[in-house]
Amino acid sequence: MAKEENRIIVEHVYKSFDIYMDKANSLKEKLLFWNRNKKEKREVLKDINLTIKNGEAVGLIGVNGSGKSTLLKLMTKIIYPNKGKITTNGKLTSLLELGAGFHPDFSGRENIYFNASIFGLTKKQIDERLDNIIEFSELGAYIDNPVRTYSSGMYMRLAFAVAINVDADILLVDEVLAVGDQHFQEKCIAKMKELKEQGKTMVFVTHSLGTVKDFCNRAIWLNQGEIQMDGEPEPVIDAYLKATT
């Protein structure tokens, strides 16, 4: 695959959510309050254009509510833009909130199969990766216990171990390293650096500017749904800090 291949192309994307003042969810409410169903449109993203190339590690920064997570969700195709187009090339994994797709009554091992298959892996591919995933998660003998008995840290370790081992071309991560102990965080960062060296494309949403500086080679600052600045991490972060403090 050519180095200059575009992994994610975002063209003129607009996204707005309907905010219901008093949402009528049931038939009774819909009939009784048909005229009360006021909604307000809130534009979360306005005319976003960006291209992420193969091998880039991009940090999305911005204050709360600036649209970072929405943009990331649009990239994963969990939600769809109102206008505009998003194209992704290659296999994509996302780690939005942890534990996605775990079935509480099933063991960690069964959940590895379930979760990895959500990312489109076949049984054989999962078999090959199983040992790596279990080792990375450091769950040891707990792997055969039902997931509902796990602590939140164990939960997260398992989710991260799966996401990182599915061999995706693009990894989208939303503020997840905040959980987990120091040791595991370092291990995750090290693993992500390894993936970066392998030429994987990564997009992060984070408030940890240190990580962006240390890890990313591009930073995008979103402000009120628009791209305020896009470029090398250092100048973008400096400008961001200046504007917010």
């Binding site: 009554d105 199969y113 999962i126």
Partner: peptide
């Protein structure tokens, strides 16, 4: 076809999980 494994595990989960407890 691409997500056949998900379909398979989902079906297994449904069939087996229904009476699991």
């Amino acid at each position: 076809y691409n997500y056949r494994e998900l379909l398979k595990t989902n079906i297994k989960k449904d069939v087996g999980g229904k009476y699991k407890n």
